[in-house]
């Protein structure tokens, strides 16, 4: 082994990254009410408490509605942008893409403030729709980053062959391009869904009285008595995220294999 120290460091770094994730189930299955060591014994009561909590259920319903809408719309916008970025040349392309990608590198509190100001000016009611509009803004750059990869690996000659064989642009897109970029689209849908489900700052600013899952969690973090239930909820959310990410990764790898490219990257 040439670099044993590098290997050790990398594993320690992984432990650092996963430390909070490993702690979560410990406290979720812990019988004690206080989130601290030593643990008090095994219990499922915090998971049971999740089942009859009406305000939590409402938050989950709101978050799911928002996240599903956002993932579909952001991915659709992302497809347009990624197609334009990878296939066409036109004046002003760089700055236009730059503006679309800007939310990726903007302090989120400023995006949220800006949207709040505009929504109040045009009298758009704060709530579900406002959160959806804000989340689309936040998620679209991530979708584009993922979809760019998928569209870049497209072979232009496949498309030209389809035109030569008499297909129209629309049928070419449907028959040739869409199946090839499908893995990217599925990854993009899942990633946007996860980001929206977890987004707090934007929802807090433009949500009015609408409670989403992160807003519910934030409100509960202040009450020590409610914390074990939040740990149980968090455990479920972590499992859900890992499941969705594994699907996204599986689909992405299959897509890479199909286009015959070398697999080097992950998300983003």
């Amino acid at each position: 082994m040439k670099f044993p120290w590098l290997r050790v460091y990398s594993w320690l770094y992984l432990v650092f990254l996963f430390a909070p994730v490993f702690l979560l189930p410990l406290f979720a299955f812990n019988a004690g009410t206080v989130i601290a060591f030593p643990l008090q014994g095994f219990s499922l009561k915090w998971f049971a408490a999740l089942l009859d909590n009406e305000s939590l259920h409402e938050a989950v319903r709101n978050s799911l509605t928002i996240a599903i809408t956002v993932s579909v719309v952001s991915t659709t916008l992302g497809i347009f942008a990624a197609r334009a970025a990878t296939r066409y040349d036109f004046r002003g392309k760089g700055p236009m893409i730059g503006l679309i990608m800007l939310p990726l590198v903007m302090p989120e509190v400023i995006l949220a403030v800006a949207l709040l100001v505009v929504f109040l000016q045009i009298a758009l009611p704060l709530g579900m729709l406002a959160i959806i509009l804000g989340h689309i803004l936040v998620c679209t750059p991530f979708c584009i980053a993922i979809l760019n990869g998928a569209f870049l690996s497209l072979d232009k000659s496949l498309e030209e062959a389809a035109y030569d064989l008499g297909e129209t642009r629309i049928s070419t897109f449907r028959l040739i391009i869409l199946p090839l970029v499908m893995p990217g689209i599925i990854s993009s849908l899942l990633i946007a869904f996860i980001i929206s489900l977890d987004e707090f700052i934007m929802a807090f600013f433009v949500g009015g009285t609408t409670v989403t899952l992160p807003i519910y969690i934030f409100s509960q973090l202040r009450f020590p008595a409610g914390l074990p239930v939040i740990m149980a909820l968090g455990t479920i959310l972590v499992c859900l995220s890992i499941l969705l990410l594994s699907i996204a990764e599986y689909v992405r790898r299959r897509g890479v294999a199909r286009t015959g490219a070398k697999d080097t990257g992950g998300f983003l």
């Binding site: 990254l17 909070p20 979560l24 977890d198 969690i217 934030f218 939040i230 968090g234 972590v238």
Partner: peptide
Amino acid sequence: PFWTSYLI
């Protein structure tokens, strides 16, 4: 870990 609930 990045994709697990930020607040938690």
